[in-house]
Design a binder for these strands. Sequence first.
DNA 1: AAGTGGTCTAGACCACAAC
DNA 2: TTGTGGTCTAGACCACTTT
Lengths: 237, 237
Amino acid sequence: MIDKMSDIPLYVQLKQELKDKILAGHWKEEEKIPSEFDLMKTYKVSRATVRAAIDSLVLEGFLVKKHGTGTFVRKMRPSIGFEPLISLSYALETLNILSKNVVLQKKRIDLGEKLKRKLRYKETTECLYVSRLRYVDDIPIAVEDSYLHPQIAPIFDEKDLSKSIAKILINETDLSISKVEQVVVPRLAQDNERRLLMIHRETQILYMQRWIYVQNQTEPAYYLELIMRNDLSTLRR
Amino acid sequence: MIDKMSDIPLYVQLKQELKDKILAGHWKEEEKIPSEFDLMKTYKVSRATVRAAIDSLVLEGFLVKKHGTGTFVRKMRPSIGFEPLISLSYALETLNILSKNVVLQKKRIDLGEKLKRKLRYKETTECLYVSRLRYVDDIPIAVEDSYLHPQIAPIFDEKDLSKSIAKILINETDLSISKVEQVVVPRLAQDNERRLLMIHRETQILYMQRWIYVQNQTEPAYYLELIMRNDLSTLRR
DNA sequence: AAGTGGTCTAGACCACAAC
DNA sequence: TTGTGGTCTAGACCACTTT
């Protein structure tokens, strides 16, 4: 209950009240909670107080607001906080850097022995290959080669691949990620990389490989290989 | 300037106005911006509008508020370059989260076969072991076990290990990092981990291993194993 | 048309930090 | 004591979604 005499701010009390109900399952996932006006009446507080409590819970990922419709309990993601480790888009967003991808190529390919070993496939001999260039303000910052396992490739057939593949994997599928392996090597850019990223010979880049495993599959669902500029400190928006 | 006839919300216009001034260097880093009341007068808007604009910029990491003192331009965070990939401290800083370490143990240890394999040592059979607990606002968020190769361990004999080991490696030595390998697995916390992190059984954690290689050495200079809470988004400030 | 969240105003009092 | 940000109220109108 809410105590107006308490030293604890009303919106904090209301926030805790709502959070407790969410965690206790009082409202189910995806279910609508009472409207802001209902909450005003129920708890006898002003709308600003209700909104402060709700906004805070939205920020913490417990609630989602839909304009004109209502406020809903957010489907719990098993991996909140995990995203920046998986998705370059997400990692950049935490720095307030917005990037966009341009798809250069997208095709099914057969894997040679060498590539098969690199992708850590055991049996599978084909995959969906996507080559992309990532831009921040029309400046190319990374070249990404993605390899999608046949088991998950169909999901991406009709997706907009200018968006983050990792984000799609996390948010638009029911797959849960079981392991992420990653190797990063700093080195100088090679000629072809320099041309794509429009950088000088001396510029250092990061070469990164990433294997993402889902659920019980033994082969990586998503292999990513990228090179990126290592001097993004000046790109804040 | 702010246009009350525009379709763009006033607080968004004000936010953009302030952001532009920050990026243009109109106020320097760590410098105080005008008070909320000054901004109300200057732009002829209500306090709620001013606060909405400022709160949004705080959230994005451009401003910091200090109760009773004022609002200040935030010091620029490190880039997404190499550092956040190596150092949890850096990675958290990009999320606007400041953390500190407490050293629980620090001792030389002899390695059994199992540990030797885990550390990926070929010949070496000893190392410097450091166990630390990482806090954000007195909340324990991670337990870290660090293993330092004998070749670099002496460097850390007299260092303050409440600071980031990776940061020391990057900034206070001449060693250059040649490779970083990392494995992340999301899973539920075990009993002993739950106690240290003061979390419930259902809470998901991230288990991470990281091998850092320097220069031409074939054995990792720094092996790190940690478990951390996977709900750090709720700790953002 | 009705209900929801989004924006905005004007005013009030409180808690904290610095002078 | 003064100035700052923190909390809270009561009211208004707008934009979006559903009925």
